[in-house]
Design a protein around this nucleic acid. Sequence first.
DNA 1: ACCGTGACGAGAT
DNA 2: CATCTCGCCACGG
Length: 112
Amino acid sequence: MSNDKVNYFDLVYQVVREVPRGRVTTYGAIAHYLGLKSGARMVGYAMNAAHSMADVPAQRVVNRQGLLTGKHHFENPNRMQELLEEDGVQVKNDQVQNFETVFWNPEKELGI
DNA sequence: ACCGTGACGAGAT
DNA sequence: CATCTCGCCACGG
């Protein structure tokens, strides 16, 4: 296990773990909050590895439009929406409803 | 070592 | 508005 990557992965996981029930955040927001110059893409990559991690609510991370772009990486494509609806987030046609309202901005909520 | 790919996003056209 | 292009960089082939 290379230590550098693990750090970077864990940073992402920590933020994701702070996302409250019923709210969602975005890849870009996390990347910006952590100051990852590598960009949102790497956050998505980190989420891929989140599978093996416990207590990482990956369903609460969507793209900047509120689309469930990562649904295919769950056990089955419906799983992500199910989990979100269990959280109390309305999802229709892979799109988070009231996205601006449920959007959870780490910079604002956790502080910059 | 090179190349294509990707859970993204911002800016240009 | 809708699309395209490019930057970003880790990883597998």
